[in-house]
Design a protein around this nucleic acid. Structure first.
Lengths: 225, 225
DNA sequence: CTCCGCATGACTCCATCGTGACATAAAGGC
DNA sequence: GCCTTTATGTCACGATGGAGTCATGCGGAG
């Protein structure tokens, strides 16, 4: 699960991102409104946490621009103090929820989970490919009815592949979709994780679920098997 | 990949074009708005970088004129300073993105790549010719309902031919379109790949899907068969 | 008939991918 | 608090398939 946190207060963003990462979220941080907009447009996030008062472009504008562009990623608005946010205005620009600072971490987490559940219901992403199934809320994976134990990263990679089942996804797309924006490492890491996944979820016999398309990337078999 | 840069500041255009050429882009430069418009109309570019303040005709006008003429080449607007560009206005004329000067080169490059990716996805280019069909997302090729295994290069060449189905395309055009940039090698490579494609996708009997036009290039049969 | 452009099969080399081993960092048990 | 275990990412090496080169043969155009 990828979270985009757009917040210029370093203390808050540090605390929030640390907490969310401990929960297994992958967190990207933007400190300016325009940067946040850019990252939201380019990246693919499961949820966006958006401060109102931001340099570059305020939260309302970011939110409105995203919605105009047809991006309906769940947005949770963060507002510095009661009254700063005209709630009606915030919701009118297309935000899904708002939270007034100071907020406690458990409350934030609860709101995030609630939004994710709601978004999941509204727009269910494919979670099944062949006899593979993932449960994104519980972070569990099943093959043919039997559960397979996966680590956080392994799960994220598989989840990403299932959401793009049938498509060829390049290693860079996987990297962008699963790892931090700031991840500067070797794309070889994708090969490593695909390898680990194959060991765990591929059929012992028969054709591989994750197919290598040389020079292009990987393809998870779609409905066909 | 061909880039049209419309920019009257010589320092900027020199720096940008040098950088982009190093990345393998083919860069054409126009210093006036009307020249840029003409080049955009005449040539076929993958992306246009368009300054706002230009002699001859400003960037908004160039952009709007192109869109009116049905030209949907991705356009990245460049604006000299914050505030010069009324963003709403810039986007309303049909620009796909905008970038405020001064910008760093990596940011420019990232934006260009993002626009190209986006354009690739929304590109409704025909992917069917006769009983041949290619799916660029799944990177698969079918002849008469049966899948044909192609390597990356073979796929790219066939994809290019199908996008130009019915037209005669010269070997150089194929080279330019598939090998993208500065390929220093033997143009004979195109003949080699056409040969390999014929082996894989042509009918064992009956007329060839890929026709040789001696002295001019190749033509992939269009809807006719 | 002759020439030039195209077709084709064989061959080489290198980029890409797969994998096991290892360094670090975080989590958990005692 | 210390030690063990598990997870993440790095690296290097080996295997392999495909990209590109080349030489030769063919055939249409003039």
């Amino acid at each position: 699960m990828k979270v985009l946190l757009v917040e210029d207060d370093v203390k808050i963003s540090a605390a929030v991102s640390r907490g969310l990462r401990a929960e297994g979220f992958t967190v990207d941080i933007a400190m300016r409104g325009d940067d946040g907009l850019w990252m939201a447009t380019e990246g693919s996030y499961d949820i966006i946490l958006l401060d109102i008062l931001l340099p570059g472009r305020n939260g309302y504008q970011v939110c409105a621009t995203l919605r105009e562009a047809g991006d309906w990623t769940p947005i949770l608005m963060l507002t510095a103090k009661d009254g700063e946010l005209d709630e009606a205005e915030g919701l009118d620009t297309g935000a899904d929820d708002y939270l007034t600072k100071p907020f406690s971490y458990p409350v934030l987490l609860a709101r995030i989970r609630a939004l994710l559940r709601r978004a999941e219901k509204r727009d269910p992403a494919p979670v099944v490919a062949g006899d593979l199934r993932v449960d994104s809320v519980e972070r569990r994976c099943f093959r043919g009815g039997f559960e397979v134990q996966l680590t956080t990263r392994e799960f994220d990679v598989l989840h990403f592949l299932i959401r793009h089942a049938g498509e060829v996804v390049s290693k860079l797309e996987v990297l962008d979709g699963v790892w931090d924006y700031a991840f500067a490492g070797d794309p070889n890491i994708v090969e490593v994780y695909v390898g680990r996944l194959r060991k765990k979820v591929d059929h012992p016999f028969g054709k591989n679920a994750i197919e290598t398309v040389r020079g292009a990337g990987y393809r998870l078999a779609g409905d066909g098997g």
